[in-house]
Design a protein around this nucleic acid. Sequence first.
DNA 1: GCGTAATGTGTGTGCGCACACACATTCTCA
DNA 2: TGAGAATGTGTGTGCGCACACACATTACGC
Lengths: 359, 359
Amino acid sequence: MQPKNIRIKDIAAMAGVSEGTVDRVLHKRGKVSETAAKRVRQVLDEINYKPNLIARTLGTNRNYRIAALMPDQKLDPYWKQSFEGISAGESQLAQLGIHFTIEHSFFDPHKKESFQEAALKVFHSRPDAVLVAPLFYYASIPFFKELSEAQIPFILVNTYIQEVKALSFIGQDLFKSGRLAAELITKGQPSNASYAIVHIDEDLTNSVHLKEKERGFREFCQINLNASIHSFVLGTPQSSTFRDQLTKVLKTPELSGIFVSTSKAYLVAPTIKHENAAVRIVGYDLIKQNLECLQNGTIDFLINQNPMRQAKLGIQTLANYLLFKKNTPPLHLFPLEIITSQNVSTYLSHEGNLSGIIV
Amino acid sequence: MQPKNIRIKDIAAMAGVSEGTVDRVLHKRGKVSETAAKRVRQVLDEINYKPNLIARTLGTNRNYRIAALMPDQKLDPYWKQSFEGISAGESQLAQLGIHFTIEHSFFDPHKKESFQEAALKVFHSRPDAVLVAPLFYYASIPFFKELSEAQIPFILVNTYIQEVKALSFIGQDLFKSGRLAAELITKGQPSNASYAIVHIDEDLTNSVHLKEKERGFREFCQINLNASIHSFVLGTPQSSTFRDQLTKVLKTPELSGIFVSTSKAYLVAPTIKHENAAVRIVGYDLIKQNLECLQNGTIDFLINQNPMRQAKLGIQTLANYLLFKKNTPPLHLFPLEIITSQNVSTYLSHEGNLSGIIV
DNA sequence: GCGTAATGTGTGTGCGCACACACATTCTCA
DNA sequence: TGAGAATGTGTGTGCGCACACACATTACGC
């Protein structure tokens, strides 16, 4: 078994130098004569050296601190799932004997100031890395600038911000997401149908997020059929006018489908189906209330953004980077998972099974 | 940072014994006096000891041999993806410094004897563990009996065989798969529609596999609507009668959808759509030809079985078991992934991104 | 009561790597 | 030319665990 598993020791022997010199060449530290460096590099090339990463972590007994700057998990079930993903990543690493300290910072997803305040605190705590869902575009730019200058690596989840040099973005292609919603909602429907896009409890002007989905939805409809699309922005479900606004949506002539751009489809689905059972409804995410609607047939399709796995992957990616210096693709786009009443159970059980050491 | 990261050394100190004694208690080896054992166990309970798994692998420098008994990857693109999954698992482990030797054994998925022969060879090579796709029910039972008796752990992929004591089964719920296909194919269709189930190039009598899918499909249709279902078994696409058989399928009155039970939908989709564009087609798997059909609209939905990830997980699960003695749920059912023209690209790129050390 | 066997228990080594340290050699300038 | 800096290079230690080995203690038979 000589071919596999070549150690630094072997390389040193092959190059006729000491282990220390090989180490210096590998890590570009200390001084090495050009002669020795050349010999080592040559051997390195020849054998295609792959360090034993498992051994590498042993010695470095640093306790890395990762800051997680996310919307408050108590305010939204979607962000609760993100939180659980972070915890899952944390405990997976703990199992491996890697003890990351994760410092959670929460903000209110509706309040820009809340984000800014939390971001400031995160920055001052000087973590080794940051995982963040930058819901507020303009508020986050200076934060990322600071992080970059301080050489603190960070990963973006959920919301893509192109301008900053994040280690990676983990999320979905929202434009494609909108197109997919359109495909699902229009398939097999009459050609003279019309559709509604409904945004619930969101400030649309600030949300590039939802606009992208809408753009995708409209583009698909425009290219593939000539349906008429109407978009609506509904206020908070607590407001007295919520019901009236919804009635207005339902008055759309030839209405055949409603696309709810957030995870809040459950707020409108039962009412809509009650008034007009033929309307197809597409929404987002596997949160409890949506699952019920899926089961009782009031929601037809959900597109799963899988916040849990996104967050978990964020932690894992940071671990790979900090521990192994392993780089990652700058864009990690998640699959657009289509959930229906018939496959939802398979998704729910699958997640629970991913608890191996090596996964 | 005392609470985390408690070593055997610490436990030994706390229990007032030597590291060796703690080791003996942990691994139930050697002789330990009841007094000492009790003290150690007490400390162990108190602190909830979690061994550093990463350190554990360091010393044990065994080279495990895993036999992979799968259909020949050259005969079918589906099995090619399985093969790639195994390779992916292998190289991920190699990156970690764990060098598993994977011994591939291929068989012809249409020939029982081929399986039996390969299985015999696998058994005689006495691997440390086996990953197998037991396509042939009766032929595989004695093989698993032998493995069990020889205490060789094995994992089943793709085809579930309840009777044997496999470490785990990794695959999909085929009954649910059939139900899902029915949901996708019937949604929004007229109530008097009829549907065809098409099995291509398979010996249906031997295939519990396909019968389960058909059963699920029929059950969904029966409960949710009163559509008429017709099933067809088509021979090999090379046969002269293939075209005639297909024409017969298309003559089904009020035909609104065709469910192809294997990954071979691409063999019939273009012809069908050419004859009758309104027929909706549902098939399986992201193989090249199917992808083309999805893009040009001749296939409407694919259900992804993700053979690649199944196989990769199989290897990873065996690694977890052999290295860490980490047990695994006996049933690992994969999500039934729905693929359409609009989300297919997101699935394809996602797989390529899962190459981290810790994933 | 002695020798031997059985039963406990502690210590030492190595896994592959990172990193600190010690040492050897050459260079530089007074 | 010699002191001291600068530049190379080799050795040693520890990470946490598994496992081999050495050693201490007790039990048992004669």
